[in-house]
Design a protein around this nucleic acid. Structure first.
Length: 803
RNA sequence: GCCGGUGUGUCGGAAUUGGCAGACGAGGCAGACUCAAAAUCUGUUGGUGGCAACAUCGUAUGGGUUCAAGUCCCAUCACCGGCACCA
């Protein structure tokens, strides 16, 4: 009899062996085929590892281990995205330097990750707060700056009137400061911006070349938000100025019955003296400026606005004079900050028109509802009416015709717009990468020379932002005052730091050559390893992080620093692990599960197996302690198989098909995020061994290899105990024979009029006529009436239709 | 409000993408082992009717397409996630 399964001993033993043997060190042998598997590196929070972390890490650990067994040179690295707000706030509250806080948290995370037996190559660990790392983050910023993609702009920030600090959106709760509950207002500050909008088209087109889960592509595209339409100039009655608007529906121009400007629109200031109700306009503006974007959204139900008295516009196609309104549902940041309102065919315009009693003219007939109820009409359908020379045309035809009409007269043109906005790159914070720029009265903003990098964060007394809203660095006059790299005169360093997104926008490049002190990574390493073959991360990062890192990578490609336009060949997402009550795990809900306790009580292999078995990988799943026990029981049953081993390096005759089927199933499922059904297949296989109370050495060996990526410690131990050659992690992935995965006889269902009546066994390759004849015979008097149709789906089903 | 996702036994979830709904696991029930319990092993387990063979209903709801629908189409409801009223 075998000794009982002691997960503690087994796991400690093998983790030591793997460390000692450098088992998972990535080779620099560039002649081998490569595989680069990547998971999002964690933010080392003070709470330590969450049970949500092991889900994606285990999934790609499975892929990495399988690839190694298939002969690939595998890069499966790990690091820490350690700059950020929570660490800084913790440091402020506890008067500890954020560097120390980070160091402690990283150590804890590493210990926890190690206890789970991941095959990361720790020699390649990176940390975004390491000056040797952020040197290159700063270096990329300088490249962007020199390429004209970094610029300064006035942008509003959230400003707490009581704490006198700028706040992240996350710190503003219901319009008030999360910490002190005081009012938060928008305060304009000069901020560094990155021109991601220059890359909008490239970022859309790049999606056609990669293998991302469809909904991820959709969210990237929706975020960039390309739309095609036209810009049209409306003349202001009796004025020289023209009011330019953007519309995706130029075909509905005849239905424009009023205009709406964003409250901040500059034309309003220009005609200040002629506006009859200026006080009202100012009051409305003030109200709108207090609203955050989120509030504007929340208040979406009730439209607000003010008519601008004394200004009217002329519809260029029919000469009609129409009123001008201002409303905060029109944003200055999109299009031209002004719209023509077509209430008959736009839901928002319709609501607005109804509320303020503005005229509604239907210009696309065939809307399913009356004018009273009219809403936006589908672009592809409908015929124009009430539109003079457009009458009778389809929407698509009308669009073309009106654009030509406008272009001929010089009053409008075709225009493509993007929702995407430039990236606000400044933070008034301490714990981030310093922006390597000096301001000089004479030369303006001057980049540091590359040789000056890294520009390290100086030691400061206090991490609190200053009263003026500047970063804590602004108080460090010794550091701030420097010389201009351009003219040698007096200069001041930029005191804002970079956002947390910066370090994570290129980290996957650094893993390919993490200790290089001359380049961000060598050409050879980048050419060999990039692109990342498979990148998995959370759904919450499928817009911003994914887009930002694709933008930087595409820029570096244009700079000929990397050799592929897209960084990630394949991108998948995992679902969240919820508490046992089905709600998000959080301290306040009291439903947090600590992975350390699961490792202690059941073992890392059980935790890994459970997290893979819990449900469909891309959907969220609720934690269940009973489920953990079930997986532990499965591993116990695997352990006890060692007492049933019989001689024979091959597969026993009655299980040969099952073995080949299982190899095929597990191999395929590991590639397609179906870890739960792969494990189910292995459970079913061992149930067969139990039924017979026997397993041949050959069957046992195959099972251990298949299970190894999921539960690496226990399988390695059993491999050694059974006396198989070498280490299991060095074994070869088993092959299957397609011919042997199919049974020679199959059971098929026999239906009459689509209802199951019975099943029969047939030879797999039996002809249709023969199968149907046997089905009829078996049915006997269950079959009555005239046979109308006979259907045979090979190997599946017979359906006889009778009347 | 908009966008995306999900809805299947008592529970977590399967279903080769239109072909025997409920694999695998959990829980329940029964049996074996035990003085007993736990652990372990074996069997059983969607509802209704029937001693049974079997029949019948059943994948959020209501329609539809099809020889055949959890899967496709239309409408509706509920829940989860994201959001920048994007003209």
């Amino acid at each position: 009899m075998s000794v009982p399964y002691n997960h503690h001993e087994v796991e400690q033993k093998w983790q030591k062996v793997w460390d000692g043997e450098n088992a998972f060190k990535t080779s620099d042998d560039y002649s081998k085929p490569k595989y680069y598997a990547l998971v999002e590196f964690p933010y080392p929070s003070g709470q330590g590892l969450h049970v949500g972390h092991p889900r994606p890490y285990t999934a790609l650990d499975i892929v990495a281990r399988k690839r190694r067994m298939q002969g690939y040179n595998v890069l499966y690295p790990m690091g820490f995205d350690a700059f950020g707000l929570p660490t800084e706030n913790y440091a402020i509250a506890n008067k500890i330097h954020p560097r120390i806080v980070t160091k402690n948290n990283v150590e804890r995370f590493k210990g926890q990750l190690h206890s789970l037996g991941y095959s990361f190559d720790w020699d390649r660990e990176i940390n975004t707060t390491d000056p040797e790392y952020y040197k290159w983050t700063q270096w990329i910023f300088l490249k962007l700056f020199k390429a004209g993609l970094a610029y300064k702009s006035e942008m509003p920030i959230n400003w707490c009137t009581s704490c006198k600090v700028g706040l992240a959106n996350e710190e503003v709760v219901n319009g008030v400061c999360e910490r002190c509950g005081s009012e938060v207002v928008r305060k304009v500050k000069s901020q560094w911006m990155l021109k991601i909008t220059d890359y909008a088209e490239k970022l859309i087109q790049g999606l056609d070349t990669v293998d991302y889960v469809e909904r991820i592509k959709v969210s990237q595209k929706n975020w960039i938000g390309k739309s095609q339409g036209a810009e049209v100039d409306f003349v202001l009655s009796g004025k020289e100025d023209r009011l330019r608007i953007y519309t995706t529906r130029p075909d509905t121009l005849f239905g424009a019955t009023y205009m709406v400007l964003s409250p901040e629109h500059p034309l309003i200031d220009k005609y200040k003296d002629e506006i009859g109700n200026w006080d009202q306009v100012v009051a409305y503006r003030e109200m709108a400026s207090k609203k955050s974007d989120f509030e504007r959204t929340e208040l979406s139900k009730e439209k607000t606005g003010v008519a601008v008295m004394g200004l009217t516009a002329v519809n260029p196609v029919n000469g009609q004079e129409i009123p001008i309104w201002i409303s905060d549902y029109v944003l200055m940041s999109y299009g031209t900050g002004a719209i023509m309102a077509v209430p008959a065919h736009d839901e928002r315009d319709w609501e607005f028109a109804k509320k303020f009693g503005l005229p509604i003219i239907e210009v696309v007939a065939g809307s399913p509802v009356s004018v009273e109820e009219a809403v936006y009409t589908d672009v592809a359908s409908g015929t124009l009416c009430n539109s003079d020379f457009l009458d009778g045309l389809s929407v698509a035809q009308a669009k073309e015709k009106i654009i030509s009409f406008l272009e001929e007269r010089g009053i409008g043109s075709r225009k493509t717009n993007y929702k995407l906005r430039d990236w606000v790159f400044s933070r008034q914070r301490y714990w981030g990468e310093p922006i390597p720029v000096v301001f000089c009265e004479k030369c303006g903003y001057v980049p540091l020379d590359e040789s000056e990098l890294p520009l390290e964060l100086p030691e400061v007394e206090s991490y609190m932002p200053t009263d003026s809203g500047d970063s804590p660095l602004a108080a460090m006059t010794d550091w701030v005052n420097t010389v201009c790299p351009c003219c040698g005169g007096p200069g001041k360093r930029e005191t804002d730091t970079m956002p947390q997104w910066a370090g994570s926008s290129w980290y996957f490049l650094r893993y390919t050559d993490p200790h290089n002190d001359r380049e961000l990574a060598s050409k050879e390493a980048l050419n060999y390893w990039m692109p990342v073959d498979w990148y998995n991360g959370g759904m919450e990062h499928t817009t911003l992080h994914l887009l930002y890192s694709r933008f930087w990578h595409r820029f570096l490609y244009d700079q000929e620093i990397v050799n592929t336009p897209e960084p990630y060949q394949k991108r998948t997402s995992h679902g969240m692990i919820l508490g046992s009550n089905g709600e998000k795990m959080s301290k306040s809900r009291g439903n947090v599960v600590n992975p350390d306790e699961i490792v202690r009580d059941y073992g890392a292999d059980t935790l890994r197996t459970y997290e893979m078995f819990i449900g469909a990988f891309d959907l969220s799943a609720a934690w269940s302690e009973d489920g953990v026990k079930g997986c532990r029981r499965f591993l116990e049953r695997v352990w006890k198989l060692q007492d049933m081993i019989t001689e024979g390096d091959g597969y026993s005759a009655d299980l040969e098909t099952k073995m080949h089927q299982t190899i095929k199933k597990v191999s395929g499922d590991f590639e397609s995020l179906k870890y739960n059904t792969a494990i189910a297949a292995m459970m079913a296989l061992i149930n067969e061994f139990y039924r017979k109370n026997a397993v041949t050495r050959g069957e046992y060996k195959t099972l251990l290899i298949l299970l190894n990526p999921v539960a690496p410690h226990i399988t390695e131990e059993l491999w050694e105990a059974a006396g198989f050659e070498g280490r299991l992690y060095q074994a070869s992935w088993p092959e299957y024979d397609e011919d042997k995965t199919v049974e020679s006889t199959v059971e098929i269902a026999v239906q009459v009029n689509g209802k199951l009546r019975l099943t029969i066994n047939i030879a797999r390759d039996e002809e249709k006529d023969a199968v149907i004849a046997r089905a009829k015979e078996a049915l006997g008097d269950k079959l009555s009436g005239n046979i109308v149709k006979e259907i045979y789906v090979p190997g599946k089903i017979v359906n006889i239709v009778a009347k």
